[in-house]
């Protein structure tokens, strides 16, 4: 049975699209057929991060409106076998996503894929609610700062009250915390919340901690999900997170300041 996973946050710019791209790619790399859907109608970011923006002809809204078939709109990823992208429309407004329309497309995708990853827009309003409505699992992307944690808390409340699972009284949406842009040095300096602080406030299981890293920006500029860069710590951290999502045990890494960096600073280096 296909699983629908929403990647959501409340707050904008915390790394939802980066994480959707990495996790979707990781699932496909491990042999699970996966589609990543861009729910951010009007902004359209996922195709850029996945490096397929030039191949977008039809989009999610075209399929909902019956202007294109799913096969016409799905973009096959060139690097990872079994991975597809369903891009958002750049031109239409968010009301183009109707509950019936989304339900119909998801039902069709469920026949073909093991995992359906939904990249949510920011906010807690209609667009974000539509992205999470049908979810079986939710990856709540949070940055280690108070406003992001507070928004994640709100979106968790919405998952509990406004998702289809909540409405129909089924088992609750399975929640995962993904802490991104984590900078251990700034945590030690008291400028950011620690993993423990965030876990304490949100009280949901930790899926992974992704370090703040230039490699992420580089990867998105090149249109290559960072998980494909196995040298990058952020790429390794996303790999661990995907393994955990699939039920494997992986110790959390990159929680402390890098030793190397510490010695560099000790020797008066540029850090």
């Amino acid at each position: 049975m296909a699983r629908i996973i929403v990647v959501t946050s409340g707050k904008g710019g915390v790394g939802k699209t980066t994480s959707s791209a990495a996790i979707g790619t990781g699932l496909a790399q491990r042999g699970h057929s996966t589609v990543i859907i861009d729910f951010d109608v009007g902004l359209r970011n996922l195709d850029l991060i996945m490096g397929c923006e030039r191949r977008v002809v039809y989009d999610f809204v075209n399929v909902i409106n019956g202007e294109a078939t799913l096969n016409q709109a799905l973009i096959k990823d060139k690097r990872t076998e079994g991975l597809y992208i369903l891009p958002a429309s750049q031109t239409r407004d968010k009301d183009a996503l109707t509950e019936e329309g989304v339900a119909k497309v998801l039902a069709e995708l469920k026949q073909r894929f093991d995992y359906i990853v939904c990249d949510s827009p920011a906010g807690i309003e209609k667009g974000a609610q539509m992205a999470l409505y049908f979810a079986d699992e939710a990856i709540v992307v949070t940055n280690p700062e108070v406003s992001s944690v507070r928004d994640s808390d709100r979106i968790l409340g919405i998952l509990q009250s406004k998702s289809l699972r909540a409405r129909e009284g089924q088992d609750a949406v399975k929640e995962h915390l993904l802490l991104t842009r984590y900078n251990p040095a700034r945590v030690s300096a008291g400028e950011m919340l620690s993993v423990a602080d965030v876990e304490d406030i949100l009280a949901i299981p930790l899926l992974g901690v992704i370090p703040e890293s230039q490699d992420v920006l580089k990867a998105s500029n090149q249109g290559e999900p960072v998980i494909l860069n196995s040298e990058a710590l952020a790429g390794q951290a996303y790999s661990d997170a995907v393994d955990r999502l699939l039920g494997e045990d992986r110790a959390h890494r990159f929680l402390d300041e890098e030793k190397q960096g510490f010695f560099k600073r000790l020797l008066g280096g540029r850090g």
Binding site: R150, D153, R154, G157, A203
Partner: peptide
């Protein structure tokens, strides 16, 4: 969670989890 409100009408309320800010 923040934004949620729980009311135990006519009796006690037991919460086996945190009550968030907001």
């Amino acid at each position: 969670r923040s934004g949620q409100q729980i009311y135990a009408e006519g009796g006690d309320l037991i919460v086996l989890a945190p009550v968030s800010e907001g």
